[in-house]
């Protein structure tokens, strides 16, 4: 079998393309007349600060995107919700509102103490807020906004927070050399593999969240686009799985993995 060079391929294809006929173009360009494309977060306000350009193609840019603004909306909603839930609390619950608030707190306290033990109960507020914030951000897709969690820079930030918590716990339980010692376990030559593992943990955590939500967003987008005017019943049923179930499960998995990683970083002798 002979190797076909580029020139031959061009010659072969040349028979099928008349010079005046439009050649097949990437659908990205055809999308202007009704095709389907996947966009990143759109820029709401371009920001030029500290000499960094507002060009979205550059490596670093501080533009105000839809991810940030939708997160603000969700922060306000969550803030109002928690403010209302936490007001006028009595020792003996009198209102349904306080019962709901206690149920919520009990749920997160139980989740943290089940997974990490009562020693780590002070992580409960962080886990609770990362759970609620992740869930609300993913559910923003239901309101027609672009989910901020379908943007790697948002979920990647949360993964970074996990990495910092892990590092902090290693310092706290293992002393100053704790993080370094943990990289040399069980034997010193394992150092590169341990280092890779340390970096990939938050990376996979954030990629999983990002990929799942983005997949749901794209599939729902394709369904709405394909059904067009007749999108009546089916999208609602599929949205139950792709939007609601996915959002809740990914929030749960993200917070659980945060707890597992922080717990695995415990270097104290009585751990495990």
């Amino acid at each position: 079998m002979e190797f076909i060079t580029n020139g031959e391929v061009v010659e072969f294809l040349g028979e099928y393309f008349e010079a005046d006929e439009p050649v097949a173009r990437p659908p990205v360009e055809a999308a202007a007349d009704g095709g389907f494309t996947v966009d990143g977060a759109q820029i709401v306000v371009p920001v030029e600060i500290l000499g960094v350009s507002s060009d979205p193609d550059s490596f670093v840019s501080f533009n105000l995107t839809t991810s940030v603004t939708v997160q603000w909306v969700m922060l306000i909603i969550l803030g109002i919700l928690f403010f209302i839930l936490g007001r006028n609390l009595k020792v003996k619950p009198e209102t349904k509102r306080q019962a709901a608030a206690e149920m919520l707190v009990d749920f997160f306290n139980g989740m943290v103490s089940d997974a990490m033990g009562s020693k780590y109960i002070k992580y409960a507020p962080y886990i609770a807020i990362i759970f609620c914030f992740s869930m609300f951000n993913s559910l923003a897709g239901l309101l027609g906004m672009r989910s901020p969690t379908a943007d790697i820079s948002v979920v990647g930030t949360w993964g970074l927070i996990t990495a910092f918590l892990v590092l902090r716990n290693k310092f706290k339980t293992g002393g100053f050399w704790g993080p370094l010692k943990s990289l040399l376990e069980p034997v010193a030559p394992m150092f590169p593999i341990n280092l890779i593992g340390e970096i990939t943990n938050p990376l996979t955590q954030s990629f999983r969240h990002f990929g799942n939500i983005l997949a749901g967003t794209i599939i729902m987008g394709i369904i709405y686009w394909a059904m067009g005017f007749f999108a009546i019943f089916l999208p609602a049923v599929l949205s139950m799985y792709f939007d609601i179930f996915g959002a809740v499960v990914q929030a749960y998995i993200f917070s659980t993995l945060t707890m597992v990683y922080v717990l695995m970083a415990d270097r104290s002798p009585d751990a495990q």
Binding site: N6, V9, V10, L13, G14, F17, A19, V23, A24
Partner: peptide, 10 residues
């Protein structure tokens, strides 16, 4: 450019 278009299609 025919060649480039065909190459791009490939």
């Amino acid at each position: 450019n025919m060649e480039l278009e065909a190459l791009r299609a490939t």
